[in-house]
Amino acid sequence: MFDSFVAGQLAIGASVGLTYALVAIGFTLIYRVLSAVNFAHGEVYTLGAFATLVAVTTLKAPPLAAVPLVIVVGLAAGLGIERVAFRPFRRFTDEASLKSRAVREATLLSSLALGIVGREAMDQVWHGQWLAIPQDKMLNQPVNLGGVMLSAGELAIAGLSLVLLVGLQWLLLRTRVGLEIRAVSSNLVGAQFSGIDINRVVLATFAVGSILGALAGMVVSLAYGSIQSSMGLTVVLKAFVAMVIGGLTSIPGAVVAGVLIGVAEGAASLWVASAWTEMVAYVLLIFTLIFFPRGLFRRRGA
């Protein structure tokens, strides 16, 4: 029996899940390199959405023309976060302090603090209101996919996710900087002895991760049309959950877990009031951790 309403809810869930996945990829990448969590990542996502809004309203650009602006904003935010919340804690270069628990927890808190400051600053600038992308700029054309109605924006989310995922694998496996990122995440001390510039690799990681996060903010704002300064908070928490369920260091794991969360939320919305669906990700998280205390997809050697 094929129920197009059910299928539609699940498909929407999957596309929402892909946005969690996009944000989670940047998160996971940074975690792999530094063993540190960047809690300010959600604000990069929000900035991406606001950059899109500015591009299509103030600059009157067509939606696609927002891409370069969003990339620049994401890049600047990523480099800024690294400089302000992470670099100061890498004063020492030996392995004991670079990945130590103290530095990990200090950067977790400093990025959390920076995230709060950034979110509140945006709240001041945009007065905490929900702002809307103009209808004619939104990607809201309906698309009929074998009886399941989706919007062009939801398809764009899926498309962009696939492109970025493939692009990221290419970057990691086929380029010099990708090799260096993998080398640093595999053995930081070994990377230093091999002449790899750690700071440069960390910056590159933040740049890549943050550009992904900002692009996610862009496509979500174009698909759903509304933007608010705290929109990144919910998403970053879910992305964090996705990273953890996915096993912390596995990028495919984070993607699968992100989609899983989205679909579970879509499925839950069929049975319970929508207010309760907020809980789904966390219930999923806690059950996963009870049975798999280190997540579902642990990379070998990690």
Binding site: V37, R101, R104, E105, L108, V244, L289, R294
Partner: peptide, 8 residues
């Protein structure tokens, strides 16, 4: 472990 605990 620490980070998993914090997220949970």
């Amino acid at each position: 472990a620490s980070i998993f605990f914090a997220v949970a």
